[in-house]
Amino acid sequence: MKLILSLPLIWTLFSTAGALVCQTCTDTRCSTTAPQTCSTETMCITASILATAAGAAAPQTYKACASSSLCPATGFQTLSVSLAGFRAILSAQCCNSDNCNSETLPTPIPQPTNTLQCLTCDATTSQCTSSVQCTGVQDRCFIATMTTGSTTAPVLGCASSNLCAAASGLGALPFMQNVGTIISRPVCCGTSLCNSVLTTTTTTMTPKTTTTTTMTPKTTTTTTMTPKTTTTTTTMTPKTTTTTTTARKTTAAAATTMSATQSATTKPTSAACSVRLVIIHLLLGLLVFTFF
């Protein structure tokens, strides 16, 4: 049980013993330093910076633990950046042994201009159409997004290729905390005025992707439209009332005609019979009179 409890302590002591120790500045001017045990960093860095803003130069010193993005290898390197109204050049040295960054490097001197020009933004108008002349080792144009106070705006300018590489790994431009906070990874390009806000080209190394396309047989669905057949049966019903009425009228007319005919016939017949009877009576009377 005691062995189990002591294992984490042994591991912590072993990890601490194997971690790198670097000198770190205790104030903004780095007038004093103190040893610091690095967490995951594998390098120590010491740097001297010359920053120029609005024509005023301010030297700075920086010492701390450094990641592999800022210090990809041991040795000396020069990093530089230029914005509208701001320039910075820094001399840095990276090492990988305990307290190897205790030395303070001399302040770098301003560098002459080169042939590269990059677009930059005017702080007063926020227009990113003016250009800045790059200097010294600045061989890239870049574009990023910076937050200063409550304002967020694009930032464009010149940078050295090693500063672009460091910024891509860090997600920010190093040693520019006094200018503002970079909130997006800078995009760098190598030709004059290539860092336009509208035409900046980002080169991304995309892993090769294999796309498998499955050919699905085309299925044709035939829909037969059966017309709806409506059968209408029309029954011709004779108009009974009219027919019946006509028949009745016809029967009545016929009956009337027959009655009239019978009457007409009966009247002459009755008259003839009466005449005959009278004649018969006269003859009988004559006969009786003759015999008696």
Rank of each mutant, 00 (worst) to 15 (best):
Leu163Thr: 03
Thr145Val: 09
Thr12Trp: 13
Cys71His: 05
Gly285Leu: 13
Lys267Gln: 05
Ala144Trp: 00
Ala64His: 11
Ala123Gly: 03
Thr145Ile: 07
Thr234Gly: 01
Cys118Tyr: 03
Cys71Glu: 06
Thr211Tyr: 02
Val81Asn: 05
Ser184Gln: 15
Ala253Pro: 00
Ala17Ile: 03
Gly190Tyr: 07
Ser48His: 09
Thr214Lys: 04
Ala271His: 04
Asp122Leu: 08
Met146Lys: 03
Leu193Ile: 01
Arg248Tyr: 04
Pro238Glu: 10
Asn178Gln: 10
Thr202Asn: 01
Thr52Lys: 11
Val187Ile: 15
Cys25Thr: 02
Gln77Glu: 00
Met176Ala: 12
Ile182Asp: 10
Thr40Gly: 07
Ala159Cys: 05
Leu7Arg: 02
Leu170Tyr: 08
Leu3Asp: 12
Thr148Phe: 06
Met215Asn: 12
Ala47Gln: 13
Gly149Thr: 07
Ala19Phe: 01
Pro106Glu: 05
Ala165Met: 02
Lys218Cys: 02
Cys194Arg: 00
Val132Ile: 15
Met225Ala: 12
Ala144Ser: 15
Gln262Arg: 04
Ala84Glu: 15
Thr129Gln: 12
Gly285Thr: 12
Ile45Cys: 02
Ala34His: 00
Thr151Glu: 11
Leu156His: 12
Thr115Glu: 14
Ser80Trp: 07
Gly285Asp: 09
Cys94Ser: 09
Met258Arg: 04
Ile143Ala: 12
Ile49Ala: 03
Glu103Tyr: 03
Gln138Pro: 02
Phe86Met: 08
Gly75Cys: 03
Arg185Glu: 14
Phe86Leu: 15
Pro8Gly: 02
Ser161Trp: 07
Ala53Gln: 15
Pro186Asn: 09
Val275Asp: 09
Asn99Phe: 04
Ala56Met: 07
Thr211Met: 08
Cys194Asn: 00
Leu284His: 06
Cys65Asp: 05
Val179Glu: 14
Gln36Glu: 15
Gln117Lys: 12
Gln93Glu: 14
Ser67Thr: 14
Gln177Thr: 12
Arg185Leu: 06
Met176Ile: 14
Ala92Leu: 14
Ala84Gln: 14
Pro238Gly: 07
Cys30His: 11
Ser130Lys: 13
Leu119Ile: 08
Lys208Cys: 05
Thr147Lys: 14
Thr74Ser: 10
Ile143Asn: 02
Thr124Tyr: 00
Thr26Asn: 00
Lys208Trp: 00
Val275Asn: 05
Pro227Ser: 13
Leu173Ala: 07
Thr243Val: 10
